[in-house]
Design a protein around this nucleic acid. Structure first.
Lengths: 400, 400
DNA sequence: CTGGTTTGTTTATTTGGGGCACAAAGTCAG
DNA sequence: CTGACTTTGTGCCCCAAATAAACAAACCAG
């Protein structure tokens, strides 16, 4: 017999949204919070009081100055409040960091991957390191988020087609992580997601995408092109978690072969190796791709004609791909990370022009294309993932 | 002096969501409503009682039968309750209909466009007809929605690049409509939007897209390809209202010229004239395109080799375009309207196969591609638009 | 018929949040 | 410097919406 079909007491429902606004910097004062939540000043005061009692935020009574009337108190995250663990697995190793609210990365350390880097061994190493960090951390740790360099299929969180790691496609990476966390006895909620998706999330909350309603994020680290889309402030993962495989957008049907089977995907037409090839250079496997592309960009800036042509070629391809997405989604901002950010810096005008020419009626001329601005956006995104339960319902997480 | 920075009393907040659930058929009983809203049975009972008192819904105590326990009462929309006006402007004229809740089109009549069909004259004729219908309608009319065959740029609701009508791009069609409604003294809230977008909305609420979280809708009436996307149950219009110009997706860079300036847009590669051309037939301007494409499809079904090749060619092009969108958005269903629906019917297997081949890892093999099923989806969508304020806050609209 | 199960309704109670008044803390004009 | 004005923070009262609990109703299965 079910007692009387009810839901557990959620307490103050606006607590989470209020914390999210302060966390993202969108509500620096109680007054702004009042307007953003659509409540009275009295309620906003009660909410901030509660958040303060939870040691999540601080209220600074020093005058903010400027306008007329009584100055607002400044709202900020509490540096002594709870923290989360953020981790990232990448091609060369993994990183574990402690992160506070407000997008603050307190400390992070890089570690090499274990030998024979199977999913189990890597996750075991990550969780072991996480346990060490938690043990050494005086503040309370309330979550753990992990960024992985493979697409993650929902709802089972299965890694598919890892590009750098030799992980078999179909690895149930979500369950493996939870098993490791359970075995280590961490006792905190855990989640993981694709690194490019998380980078987009972080840029939207704290970086170059702040305030954008719909955001397109495109990036490339080593090989392939990743991206993500934020719709109405939320990461759009699609029905299967595999949305925005922007790398699969075809920009040249007669272009280079792509591992996915098609020809001329953005994946192979606008990543670092594509720039090397377009500039007529060989990929030297013994050196980091990043250094080699930096050389090409520098040469182009110095006037090297072939390098310049290569930059323009790849920029045009990228522009075509972005224009295609813009035609479909009409975001209000485009943020470029890593390699593409450098590409934009090398020629400020060309990419916006190409995008404008190739998107319907040139309306995208008004869509700003800006470089990412967070130093470790994937890690910051993993922190966002870890904070998600707290932002959804602070009481439920902190009450334990 | 602002009194105390407050928001107006909204009464029962769950009233709107509850009505929306009943309206879309997602909550056929109080019990389901209880679960969907996350409230107790007592609250759900109070809410349905209030909606019943507003004459918006009916409660039918007849047994629904089947399972154990006390049978639920059936919830349904009240046929005698308020109605809205739905109108559509199309190439040959305009249509005005009366619509009830639940996606019911009560009656609709077609009218020719006035001579010299300027925006002002057409809107004047539509509103005049609407006023006549309202005057003859015994039930209370609480809204007016209009579907127009041009993209509508937000937030000013400006028509851009009309394809069939000779309307100048940049026409402030939203303001013109409001002026006409005001001049006619209708005294009801009014809104308008692009017809393909509204068709997608209607299919999602009441048609082939019911229950889908993310829905891609692609259609073509006469010339060009339209579409829309429903994300998390809401129409995605992008930041400027011009999202999902799916017609601008390039499927063949060496293809036919498109009015937009590009080559090989879906707009000119997968619309009715494209099929005629691919089947080696001349477009006879004196006959409706629909009849001509129907002939090609019939010929293909009868074994005409050239017609068959044309159908396959256009199907492949359409599949390429859909696959591109799927790679970016990963919807969980694709609905095809009008011409594309007929194209799918002509060859059930080919389109899904092409989409599967051309989208990443063939994962779209699981994404159903189904024909639209509403007879007048644009009109039904206009009704949805008119209902929107009521579904958002029934009391605010009906209290007057 | 009896017991079990689910649904609808009534009543009492809790509580989140609005309305209001007032105090506080600044700016601005003279 | 002073007083008017503006905006913010807070305490108190009250209401209304939702929960909880108990009960009644309606059906099925033995």
């Amino acid at each position: 017999m079910q007692p009387t079909h009810t839901t557990p007491d959620r307490g103050r429902a606006a607590l989470g949204p209020a914390l999210a606004l302060i966390h993202s910097g969108a509500a620096p004062t109680r007054s702004v919070l009042t307007g953003a939540l659509g409540v009275t000043r009295a309620t906003a005061g009660a909410i901030t009081g509660e958040l303060q009692a939870l040691r999540l935020i601080t209220v600074d009574a020093r005058p903010a100055g400027g306008t007329r009337g009584r100055p607002s108190h400044r709202l900020g995250v509490d540096p002594a409040g709870p923290v989360v663990l953020a981790a990232q697995i990448h091609a060369d190793g993994f990183t574990v960091a402690v992160a506070g609210l407000g997008g603050v990365l307190h400390a992070h350390r890089d570690h090499p991957l274990p030998d024979r880097a199977t999913p189990e061994r890597v996750l075991h190493a990550v969780v072991a390191e996480a346990a060490r960090v938690i043990a050494a951390e005086p503040r309370r740790c309330v979550g753990f988020g992990l960024a992985v360099p493979t697409p993650v299929a929902l709802p089972e969180r299965i890694a598919v087609a890892a590009m750098y790691l030799d992980w078999p496609s179909g690895t149930p990476i979500g369950r493996l992580l939870e098993d490791e966390v359970e075995a280590a006895g961490l006792g905190i909620p855990v989640d993981l997601a694709n690194d490019a998706n998380l980078a987009a999330l972080a840029e939207h909350r704290h970086g170059a995408g702040r305030g954008a309603r719909h955001l397109l994020y495109v990036t490339s680290g080593h090989r392939g092109v990743g991206g993500a889309l934020v719709v109405d402030g939320r990461l759009h993962t699609g029905s299967g978690g595999l949305a925005l495989e922007v790398g699969q957008v075809v920009v040249d049907p007669n272009g280079r072969r792509c591992p996915c089977g098609n020809r001329g995907c953005l994946d192979v037409e606008a990543d670092p190796p594509a720039l090397l090839a377009a500039a007529g250079r060989e990929d030297d496997p013994s050196r980091p791709l990043f250094d080699q592309t930096a050389e090409v960009l520098a040469a182009a800036a110095a006037g090297d004609r072939q390098a310049r042509a290569g930059v323009e070629h790849v920029t045009d391809r990228l522009g075509l791909g972005i224009a295609g997405v813009i035609n479909i989604l009409n975001p209000d901002r485009v943020v470029l990370g890593a390699f593409h950010s450098a590409l934009l810096a090398a020629d400020q005008d060309r990419l916006p022009r190409v995008v404008q020419e190739r998107s319907y009626w040139g309306r995208s001329g008004c869509i700003p294309i800006v470089p990412a601005c967070l130093p470790r956006s994937e890690l910051a995104g993993a922190a966002e993932l870890a904070w998600a339960p707290v932002l959804a319902d602070p009481l439920a997480v902190l009450a334990r």
